[in-house]
Design a protein around this nucleic acid. Sequence first.
DNA 1: CGGGGTAGCTATACAGCTACCCCGGTGCCGTATT
Length: 529
Amino acid sequence: MQKLRGQLDEALVRYFGYPSFRPGQRELIEKLLQGKNVLGLLATGGGKSLIYQLPSLILPFLTLVVTPLISLMVDQVQKLRQQGRRDVAYVNSALNPEEVQQLLREIRSGRYKLLYVSPEKLKHPAVVAALRQRRVSLFAIDEAHCISQWGHDFRTDYLRLPSVVEAVGSPPVLALTATATAEVVEEICRLFHIHRDDLVKQSLNRPNIAYDIQKVDSEQEKREWLLHALAHLGGSGIVYCSTREAVEQVVRLCREAGIDNVHGYHGGMEAMERVLIQEQFLRNQLRLIVATNAFGMGVDKPDIRFVLHYHYPASLEAYVQEVGRIGRDGLPGYAGLVYWPGDTAIHQGLLRAESLSRADVEKFLQVVTGTASRTISFAQLHTELGIGETQMRALFFYAEQAGMVADVVLTKDGYVYHLGTGEQHIAAHRIAEELARVRQAKLEKLQAMEHWLEQTGCLRRAIAAYFGEQADGLTYDMYCCSHCGLDRSYYGRQTGAAARTMSDKEWDLEQVLGRLLGRRSGLESGGSL
DNA sequence: CGGGGTAGCTATACAGCTACCCCGGTGCCGTATT
């Protein structure tokens, strides 16, 4: 063990240039090297990626990193390659089929030590076979809260990860996140057989963030509050809205008020435009981003001084993720939220829109079992079942769990599947129950968010309590929250880096995108990834 | 759930009201088409 510690210290200095580990890092790495499954609960900006990047240099075989977004994979691989690591790659839909084949050959040949992958790609038998053949030394899951946040409906492949771990030979598992309630911790530990003693948890309290919430009576008052806040805050920040349309409206509102260093961001925009906007924000060429919850994950900007919520998010977990982007440099930052009770309609409506009834489930099973071709086309989804692709994926997932479907593949014709041996009426019951349970859980998270808004105690302590933390001794005088006391004018005096003018080269769209996406010039040429 | 838009009525105001319908977020994947 003494020898191992020495090796770790040496590698830390040699490869990362840090003199010492940050809290939790060494403990997690040592447990992993002992072959244990671990969960790391570290505050945002706590140096999570080092926990798998460093072992990947020491371990004999492959370190696999499951990542929710392609942009995160591209970003990480690009950074590591710039640091001179040639044994790093990613597998996702940014690669064309030939590139994937080439990459799988290279994986089997042992060229890579660190591989980033989307959970969806891990469903492919060819990918799993290559990984098993090469052998996996470490199975890391970044942003592990996605398992609970998305795994139950939106991206069910997250819930398949435990069987993937087994399929690649049950290597040690590392789950990492900055946001997890006691229930989420429990679920991750259960899914990946993580022992209670192997949970490494730090306080998620962010003492440099001040919380301010304001209840108003109308949309007009919200707009006034927002403009007033923006006029008085210094530095760069994010405004979160719950709908794309609200994003556009708030951007217009800002511009009409003379704030023009601003841009909107949401999932309906072109991927390239989104990349460009994010990049400009990171470089302080944009001061303000108005966005839906699409914006933020992987945005590693240290000097975000404020996050404003024009709509509150659907859960406290989401809220903590969003405001957690403030002040990673450790300097003071401001989290402001304005709401009126009518805002709940957006969340209630989304919940209603995505919920499937028992009748929907039965109809789905009838169509699935009654189609001789064992195929459901995209057109059928809409005409016969009246549901979208996301719901369809969830239905297939739970149908598999209930034994009604043996496997599913997405092809040009739609979903092609094989039937299982389950009994239809039992399966329908189980699927409907499961969907109801997922919906109920979401509703409760929304209600917890709304309860937090309405309660009158310290906002910081209430967050800590929600995440099961002891909140004693959190006293920040006039820099805590709007319930304890808050000197708002203080945050106007804080200024971040001033916006500067871009050079012509930086404006070059191709330059920026080529650097960030690096698809065509990708793996085979090596350097430009 | 509830805001916003629209159709339709009233009954003589180029408006005003009501009733109704629609819509609302996150990203992989694979495929065909721009």
